[in-house]
Computed example of a mutant assay.
Amino acid sequence: MASPDRSTRGVDLWFRSTVCLRRVDGAWRVAHEHTSTPVHMDGDFSAALDLRP
């Protein structure tokens, strides 16, 4: 069980989501799904978790 401090704290996170659909027998189905976070382009390519709007 999460501690009360962690469960009430907000989290900011930027991420991308791509969903590719395919029509099968007249119904749309999810054929592929991909999510990712932006990365720092300074050479280490670590996740850019500190972005702000």
Rank of each mutant, 00 (worst) to 15 (best):
F15A: 11
A48L: 01
R22Q: 15
W14Q: 15
V39P: 00
D42W: 00
R16L: 14
G10Q: 12
D44P: 00
W14I: 09
S46T: 02
T37Q: 12
S7A: 08
S46R: 03
C20H: 11
W28P: 01
F45A: 01
V19K: 04
G26I: 03
R22A: 13
R52L: 08
D50E: 07
S17N: 10
T18W: 10
V11W: 04
S3M: 07
R29N: 11
S36C: 15
A47Q: 01
P53I: 03
T37D: 03
S17D: 10
P4G: 06
H40T: 09
L49C: 04
R9I: 03
S3Q: 08
D5A: 11
R29V: 12
S3V: 05
P38Q: 08
C20S: 09
L21A: 06
R6N: 14
A47V: 02
V39R: 05
M41D: 15
P4W: 08
H32I: 04
R16D: 12
S7V: 09
A27M: 06
P4I: 07
H40G: 02
T35K: 04
D44G: 01
P38G: 07
R6E: 14
L13Y: 04
V39I: 15
G43S: 08
R29E: 15
D25K: 12
T8Y: 02
F15N: 08
R52E: 11
L49M: 06
D25Q: 08
G26S: 07
D44Q: 03
W28C: 07
